[in-house]
Computed example of a mutant assay.
Amino acid sequence: MNKNEQGIRLMQEGKLEQAVALFTEVIEENPTDPVGYINFGNVLLSMDDFTRAEIFFKRAVELEKEVPAAHYSLGNLYYELERYPEARDEFDLAIKQGMENGDVFFMLGMSFVQLEQNTFALPFLLRSVELAPEDPENTFQYGIALAKEGIYEEAVVMLERTLTLKEEDADALYNLGAVYLAWQGDLIVAKNFFERALQSDAHHSLAENGLAAILAYEEQDK
């Protein structure tokens, strides 16, 4: 295991100061290798030291023309800071430079979602689901994006699939109810999903409000 690998393990174990010390050695020993700067930047990012993390990521980009990991890390930094146009551009660069995993496609899709460009988000969220089919968050967000576009039948498939990956997830249950309301106007099915969401999370305000609205409607209809 080399020092970069040791440092990553230390970071995963929460031993950040030791990771910083090790990545400092890596940079001192290999000052023209971008990997050490990316790893050091990721430690700083985990510590919310955004200003210095950006410096290290940009240094990695300066050292090597194509370094997708640095662009991905910059994308995460900008996303965290709600600088979504810059996050979108960095994730896009990471993909163009060869990064091919569910995370980068997911984050690019979510950057478009945050920019209220839902249509553009769809193909990237779909690709993230294809690459990481066991990830409930990818599946859930793709389902939500489909619902926003009125593609209700496919949205239901994705939200139900989320429940197979994350049993009785309150957000998936609530959104299934909301989709059935928008798609078919089905109060009975929607009520059932809202009730299940509240059984899973008694403080789910959206499910609580949805259920209250249905109960009020039923009371008026008597």
Rank of each mutant, 00 (worst) to 15 (best):
I55A: 15
F56P: 00
S73L: 11
V67S: 11
A69K: 13
K58R: 15
E80R: 09
R83C: 05
Y79S: 14
Q97C: 03
E66Q: 15
L74R: 06
E82N: 13
A60R: 05
V104M: 08
E80A: 14
V67G: 07
F56A: 01
E54I: 04
V67D: 10
D92P: 02
A60W: 13
A94Y: 08
E62V: 13
R59E: 10
K96W: 00
A94T: 06
F56H: 11
P85F: 02
L74H: 08
Q97G: 03
D103V: 01
D92N: 11
E54K: 11
N101A: 05
F91Y: 14
N76Y: 03
E62K: 14
L108H: 02
E86I: 03
F105C: 01
K65I: 06
F105E: 04
N76D: 15
K65L: 10
E90A: 12
F105A: 01
N101P: 02
K96A: 01
F57K: 13
N76A: 12
F56M: 14
Y79Q: 07
R59M: 09
M107H: 03
E64Q: 15
Q97P: 13
D89M: 05
R88M: 14
F106Q: 01
F57D: 06
K65M: 06
V104Q: 05
Y78L: 11
L81F: 03
